[in-house]
Design a protein around this nucleic acid. Structure first.
Lengths: 200, 200
DNA sequence: TAGGTTTCACGAACATCGTTCGGAGTTTGC
DNA sequence: GCAAACTCCGAACGATGTTCGTGAAACCTA
């Protein structure tokens, strides 16, 4: 019978504890808010004392960074899952923006962590940041692939998406007013770019 | 020679100190960020010890609220100053949005305090909040007065303004790329609403 | 199985934070 | 001139993120 080297078992258990800490951190952060996360509370939730967490994470910000990386990975995965062009640019625009706003409103805390910069001393590490950038670039490539926009239009669409998400989260969480709003915005955008294309 | 009652002199000096504290708080907050404001630092900046501040403000959040109220008053004043319709709706839209984005980007910290909710335990008092609401409603009245929009379009325009401001502040502070972006956005919006109006 | 090394959990403690308290020192009202 | 009110401040409290040293496991080597 194959027995794993003990060295791997040690690393495995360490990784499991790290994952457990991250999961507990998500729970606390979703319940109490991003800034309300306390190292002592988090430690107690996983059955440890506060200083013990520092065996797994160099600082509280390192824990935030683990959350950021996980959220960015989910974002990238979600974006990739939406990469199924139908041939109808307007419908693709709508579907993509629906997916994006849905992703953000499904977990406002994750959105806040990923796309707003609201935690006082925290900056994501370059590695974690690269993951989220990969997601954003994937979105941009997709929209550019629709063949209806020019480079400047992407800024416009980004601003539109940001504003829609922000307004949705702060004004009408859980409602579906945002669906009509997104549809209207995408129609507006589509009319804009095609109208410009049709001119000489 | 007229001599003010001493009671008024006392109140006057108290109000002067309060104003001095608020000014110093703006300075610190602009230099170090909203969340980095420390009661002890602020006290030292006005030549006091930390507990003395509590003779003037009930809590640190009360200081934030004073900043909020002052920022909201500036916002209201700025909005009112822009209430000069020219008769050209598109130009008015552009000018209004230029003014708004300029107001926000001129002082990102003020924007963050007024329109983002980024300070952990702070909620503006109803009185301060009412001032900012008055500004927003003034903007909405103005846009509605242009006679080109329907109620749903205001949400769209708000989302657009939010997104433009957010993207400008986080990506290109101080640059003028936002001018082209705002112009393009307003043109897009204008085309959208007039195009819909021209249909039966 | 025995001895040596690495890893980890914890109690104590530190600096800093917002805030409270009690008592001086000053200003005001009568 | 005296009592009341107002300011100011040193000391201290509870909570925060974090460091240090200790001791007990877990692991590797023999």
């Amino acid at each position: 019978m194959f027995v794993k080297p003990t060295r791997d078992r040690r690393a495995e258990r360490r990784e499991a504890t790290r994952a457990e800490i991250v999961d507990a951190a998500w729970e606390l952060v979703r319940a109490e808010g991003l800034a309300a996360l306390s190292v002592r509370d988090l430690a107690r939730k996983v059955g440890l004392q506060a200083p013990s967490l520092y065996s797994y994470f160099a600082s509280k910000n390192a824990i935030y960074d683990a959350l950021f990386a996980q959220g960015a990975a989910q974002y990238l995965e979600d974006v990739e899952a939406q990469l199924t062009p139908t041939g109808d640019p307007l419908q693709d625009l709508r579907a993509g923006m629906h997916a994006f706003v849905r992703f953000c409103t499904d977990d406002p805390v994750r959105y806040q962590l990923l796309f707003q910069r609201t935690i006082p001393g925290f900056e994501p590490s370059p590695e974690s940041f690269a993951i989220s950038i990969a997601g954003l670039e994937s979105v941009q490539r997709r929209i550019a692939g629709l063949g209806i926009t020019e480079p400047g239009d992407l800024d416009l669409l980004t601003a539109l998406g940001t504003g829609l998400t922000d307004q949705q989260i702060s004004n009408d969480p859980g409602g579906d007013r945002w669906i009509r709003l997104v549809d209207s915005a995408m129609e507006m955008y589509f009319t804009h770019v095609t109208h410009r294309k049709s001119r000489p």
